[in-house]
Amino acid sequence: MSESERFEPLIIGFTCNWCSYRAADLAGTSRMKYPPNVRLIRLMCSGRLDPTFVLKALANGADGVLITGCHPGECHYLEQNYKAMRRYYLLRAMLTQMGIEPERVRLVWASAAEGARFAEEVTRMVEDVRRLGPLNWPAIAADGAEPAASRNGHGPAAAAETAPVVPEEAKP
């Protein structure tokens, strides 16, 4: 695939109001560059991240979801980022069962001082998801197949002709 027609993933990023959103702000004020594939949503805390937000984003066409929050021990709400972390690992297990590569959803800690880290992590995530290829969840659903999520262990790969590339090693 040539440079001009390479796959450009869309990634939804969730930030917390106190650390990672400010890290994104700092990346901006420091004029750091990262690819424009990530679109951010501000929550008050990573603990607010309802796993359905992630599924909703994937179902609506995002190829990946980046979840960010304060470093462990630095949560503005004391310990809620740990709760985000717990959910994140459960969610990854669930995504695997749904046939979605768990690498499409990533949890990253970034303090308000870590603009550079934020930019680096976004860049890395975009590259990794680009390598995985499009998720194409909505395309499958729009083709009239039954919802991928209910297929219990069968990934979207089997659902339609427009099957996304699911690397063998990513299958559960």
């Binding site: 008050m44 805390c45 991240l49 809620q80």
Partner: peptide, 10 residues
Amino acid sequence: CQGCGTCVAA
């Protein structure tokens, strides 16, 4: 309540 939203998500 400080408004973190963890309970909302849970």
